[in-house]
């Protein structure tokens, strides 16, 4: 079995016994999708909510609105059915300016994590994929492991208990 690493602005697929991992999500969001019948799993690590304002070359894996459809299409090619897909999501933290250090957090750029989570939730809802588990927002980084054999998303953070969702 292999542990397949998903980079930042990246997405990958895996079948059991292989697993997927993405490291140190901060304000980015990790989206785990699974077809429980064919056991085709996918993990996408997005940085930004929308590609709408981007001109020129576009990395579709960077944006929630382009990465999620791309991941679904690739999973369908491997035998997954869109109607059976279930989602688990993690990330979207506010790493700086969350008030714990007394700085000036007036700029809405600090809240990019929250906007990423909102975008991912809205896109999945529109496509009709239920979010069955999530560990999002707050102010700490997360490493996410996804095992298509069990459908379990494991979230690891510094100085916190490991969560299995």
């Amino acid at each position: 079995m292999a542990s397949i690493t998903v980079g930042i602005s990246d997405l990958k697929l895996a079948n059991p016994p292989d697993t997927l991992i993405t490291y140190a999500l901060g304000s980015c969001v990790g989206i785990c999708l699974l077809d429980p019948i064919t056991r085709v799993g996918g993990l996408s690590h997005i940085m930004l909510p929308s590609s709408a304002a981007v001109t020129g070359d576009l990395n579709v894996m960077k944006f929630a609105d382009t990465a999620i459809p791309d991941l679904i299409k690739k999973m369908e090619r491997k035998g997954a059915s869109r109607t059976r897909l279930k989602a688990k999501i993690a990330g979207g933290a506010q790493m700086f300016g969350a008030g714990q250090t007394g700085g000036t957090a007036s700029n809405d750029m600090w809240q990019i994590g929250q906007r990423n989570v909102q975008a991912v939730t809205a896109i999945l809802q529109k496509i009709g994929i239920p979010i069955i588990a999530k560990d999002v927002l707050s102010n700490y980084g997360r490493t996410v492991l996804f095992d298509p054999a069990t459908g379990i998303m494991t979230v690891k953070s510094l100085n916190k208990n490991v969560k299995e969702l």
């Binding site: 940085m47 981007v54 790493m95 700085g103 957090a105 990019i112 490493t143 510094l158």
Partner: peptide, 24 residues
């Protein structure tokens, strides 16, 4: 310069914020 913000966490998670702002 703005007032500095401090955070202690995973290196990758800390970098995500400025990367998102300037990543495009």
């Amino acid at each position: 310069m703005s007032v500095p913000e401090v955070s202690i966490d995973m290196a990758g998670a800390l970098l995500s914020m400025p990367l998102i702002k300037f990543g495009a």
